[in-house]
Design a protein around this nucleic acid. Structure first.
Lengths: 353, 353
DNA sequence: CTGAAAGCGCTTACAG
DNA sequence: CTGAAAGCGCTTACAG
């Protein structure tokens, strides 16, 4: 059986078994006339056009997608917080929509994160570009994408090296600003809970924290430092450890907002009020920060803009531009709400000044 | 200038300006040989294959997408809560991935929700099907989709009629179960905050609430009822109104979790403890319910399964099946956490039994 | 393994 | 406005 051309593809994935010639025959016109209707060209009588259009619709014959507005960008997410993922998606979508491009969403189960199995189905779809919001993007990933000619941008990379262009935010500056805020309020014993020790993002925030202390001449006390996954439970448990110290901190900087909510819980269990007895700072500024009591002071990561920037970057790469930067870091901002206040003159704690 | 065929489209949206014939010339072979390589056919020498593949890669010549695995499903979201939107997306994606289909994400700004402007760009992409998570899907929408031969399924429809097949959850049963839980704890004065009065979902929940009261022989007190948008602020303000009544409720059923968080705030301002002085029940079970203090008792909507069901439904429609049901309602479940407890014997309130 | 020839489906330029 | 003819890009079947 001979089937030349690629006509089948052009008629949509599940409908339309008729060729232009067959539609033409049904309409009692020639193939060129059907072709004109299909492309919205002039030079077709109104009644003819109507008849042909009715037949095209009836048989699910899909108008060809205009060149260049084909498929679109793909965002790959691993098991991350939903409210963050959606903000990133919205940022990507806004940029893509302006270019008439679709945005695809792929959810990678945690077990696959480190591997390559998500790559092939993605490349089969021939996206203009891919934005990976998964940890563990490796040179193997990069090579596969490069071979396929599909640009790849990673978001908030946690690895030690960036095999691909990447977009993140200034964790160091954010942590610095948050720590200075606590120092300005008068805190001197500040606990810090970071994300997992291996993550570069954790390190950047910890370094910003230490830089603020150093600049203020406040010694860094190793005993006030903890690290663990970016989860509520770890914030709660590590927070409880810090509060149980003989000389507990008057404020705690957290690796993210979820950990901060966990510290809220630890404070509650310890019978401490926030911010009166303990100041707490988060990181990320997810939407729920405004709905807890007290509303959480935190460092805002501009997730929507991060997504938009990644989209612009991957589109530039698709246009053949070489990236001027391998890593773009967008600014973070301190959002002061009600979880931070000057430390109480706690008689248990000797004032250091 | 003559440009026959559709070759341009087949070569990917932004790369590949070479035809098969040109690649063939560069490789020093004939077009048929390039064609074979492109389709993974046998009968090409290994060295020839390698040479051609290198050239194809180099010029970004994309392998044609296999018939039937073309584009995919599109999800259209309006400005809803991110953590809910992402759960729906994940459910859709899981079903789509099993069929090798992509999932597109479109974010509709609130101003467009009621209108049709999101339809055309969507249809241009020729999706297999569309899942609309926006309020205000009308017959006008349905007609446009029908004309294009693209099936449309609405999620949690809020309108009075369902112009399209739809998936939701059993709001009536969920509210009934939650109210019975409060009645079983001994509450008799139960306040209720519903979503916007016009929403059918609000009505279903209110009816379930009243059915539980009626069954238990507890009179419904209109003065304990309020309605407003599904937002934190409205929960807070309407909750404050209820708590300021001369004979305030001992428990409040909310239209959703955000309103419940608002009621938490109102209780705090009024100096009431939850659940000791006031029981609170939410609706939705977003991930943050476990992270507030106390963790919120709520009615779980299975958003991920709702998305998956909608995906299966739209795929069945695309396969030409007629839906057996116009509206599928998935089950809700009461999740009892720590925001509900027996009412205190408040001396201000005369015990009704 | 390779490619000349034939063929397919579509579009374009142009004659009527 | 319409379509026969020419042409394009690709693929297939087959000869070598």
């Amino acid at each position: 059986m001979i089937e030349g051309g690629r006509s089948r593809r052009l008629r949509g994935p599940r409908r339309g078994d008729l060729s232009v010639a067959e539609i033409a025959e049904l309409a009692g016109v020639s193939p060129p006339t059907v072709s004109k209707v299909l492309h919205g060209r002039t030079g077709v009588g109104e009644s003819t056009r109507q008849r042909v259009e009715a037949l095209l619709r009836e048989h699910g014959f899909r108008r060809a997608v205009p060149t260049g507005s084909g498929y679109g960008l793909e965002v790959v997410c691993s098991n991350m917080l939903g409210s963050i993922a959606i903000e990133i998606m919205r940022g990507v979508e806004q940029v893509a929509a302006a270019r008439q491009l679709a945005v695809g969403f792929t959810d990678v189960r945690s077990c696959d994160t480190a591997g390559l199995p998500w790559v092939e189905p993605l490349l089969l779809r021939q996206p203009v570009g891919v934005i990976a919001v998964v940890s563990g993007v490796t040179v193997a990933h990069r090579d596969l994408f490069e071979a396929a000619g599909v640009p790849l941008v990673a978001l908030d990379p946690t690895g030690d090296v960036h095999p691909t262009p990447a977009v993140g935010s200034t964790g160091w500056s954010g942590a610095l600003a948050a720590t200075r805020h606590l120092l300005d309020l008068g805190h001197r014993r500040i606990g810090v809970i970071t994300g997992p020790a291996g993550f570069l993002a954790s390190r950047a925030r910890l370094d910003g924290f230490r830089a603020a202390l150093d600049t203020a001449g406040v010694p860094f006390d190793e005993r006030l430092m903890r690290d663990g996954p970016f989860l509520f439970e770890h914030g709660r448990d590590l927070g409880a450890e810090l509060l149980a110290l003989p000389d507990p901190p008057t404020a705690i900087m957290c690796g993210n907002d979820l950990q901060a909510f966990g510290v809220y819980e630890a404070a509650r269990i310890a019978g401490l009020r926030i911010p009166d007895d303990l100041s707490v700072v988060g990181f990320d500024d997810i939407e729920h920060c405004a709905w807890v009591a007290p509303p959480l002071t935190t460092v805002r990561q501009p997730f929507s803009e991060i997504g938009a920037t990644a989209a612009r970057m991957v589109l530039a790469l698709a246009d053949g531009e070489r990236p001027s930067e391998r890593l773009v870091e967008l600014g973070t901002t301190l959002v002061v709400r009600d979880s931070t206040a000057p430390p109480r003159r706690n008689p248990r704690i000797r004032s250091p000044w």
